[in-house]
Amino acid sequence: MSDKEICDNSLKFFGAVTASVSHELNNVISIIDQTGGLLDDLLYSADTGKPVPQEKLRSIVDKIAVQTDRGVRIIKRMNYFAHSVDEAVKQVNIVQLTDNFARLMQRLASQKKIEIVASFSADSIQINTNPFLLELLLYYLIKSSFISYNTERKLRLEINQSSSKVIILVEKLPDAEAPEISIIEELAGRAKCSFDITLKDMIVYYRLKF
């Protein structure tokens, strides 16, 4: 994969994430907009002599608070992701990066009825990597599993740490097409890790070793 191809694919990846995040934020804004509209309806009703119950106002305030929190979380995730392009190689908390990545990807996965289940053996594991290319690599690995299913499925993402190495495991769902190995190896090299495929508890995983 040439530098230009990396650049083109990075832009596509960034675009896919941005489109997904903006769609999710638009949903938050639409809910707040409808909540404001409901409040307006109730005020109009109060003007015509029908009092607004206190508990109704409380539930409206709660709805706005829930959606505001949701919006803030989405923006924080996007901001963390956007800053992953700041430096080519740096020390990062790979648990935080992977957790943020999994949450960003969840909306895209949900469209295919897939729940990303992330588990980590520690809260903080520091490694040297190219954070953006590692995210691009993870995207390639999970994207191949984003196939429409009739039933809901779980896709596991794990980080395990032993004394000498850190391993990220990304599940391959049974019907998923394998991503192009040469691209994965190229990206793994640029993200400062090695790549192989392993079987654990009868499940095929892609394995990234640092």
Partner: peptide, 15 residues
């Protein structure tokens, strides 16, 4: 699929 959205809109349309 945004349940909160449909519930709010439904409530306003029913009113």
């Amino acid at each position: 699929d945004e349940k909160e959205f449909t519930e709010l809109l439904a409530e306003r349309m029913r009113s």
